[in-house]
């Protein structure tokens, strides 16, 4: 069964263990700047929000890649960067409207969340269940609810009539 990362900002304490776990899992270093998941801080509201690739159906990054370096993992549904094929042109980093594909200056390639092949380190590391790894269809309603109102997709769809 396909699983998804569930992110609940209200439960996030900003401890950044997800960032450390992600960078350790994927880059073998404790370096939040190399993490594929990032926690954003809202001082004004006293809130934190973890955020990473939504593995969106549109897959803007994948379609914009000129050399077929981003592919879909059939088992997890994740859009993955094949590092050996990526030339580092960065077109995907501007094509992704969620800002979740980043350029890694050290390797000259791009990095994005690949769901750790189906066992995301961030979800394992999160002590407050702000990040959980759950059945995708079981929580489909939550997903719809969370995104229905104001996501990029829904706004895009409404432009057909108005723009």
């Amino acid at each position: 069964m396909l699983k998804s990362l569930a992110l609940e900002p209200a439960k996030c304490t900003g401890c950044l263990q997800c960032e450390l776990a992600c960078s350790w899992e994927n880059e073998a270093s404790f370096n939040p700047s190399k993490s594929r998941i990032r926690v954003f801080t809202f001082h004004e509201e006293g809130r934190f929000a973890p955020y990473t690739c939504t593995q969106c159906a549109e897959a803007w990054c994948l379609h914009a890649c000129p050399v077929e370096a981003i592919v879909i993992n059939g088992a997890t549904g994740a859009k993955e960067v094949i590092e050996d094929v990526c030339v580092g042109c960065k077109v995907c980093t501007i094509a992704c409207p969620f800002g979740t594909v980043n350029y890694n200056h050290d390797t000259g390639k791009v990095i994005k969340c690949d769901l750790c092949g189906g066992d995301p380190a961030c979800a394992r590391a999160c002590p407050t269940e702000a990040i959980t790894w759950v059945d995708a269809d079981q929580t489909g309603y939550d997903r719809m609810q969370a995104w229905a109102a104001r996501s990029v997709e829904s706004i895009d769809a409404t432009q057909g009539g108005g723009a």
Binding site: L5, L7, E45, A49, C53, V134, T139, R143
Partner: peptide, 14 residues
């Protein structure tokens, strides 16, 4: 993030 997601109650599934 602040303009697309309620920072309090909602659960965002990825």
């Amino acid at each position: 993030l602040a303009c697309t997601q309620s920072l309090s109650a909602c659960k965002v599934l990825h």
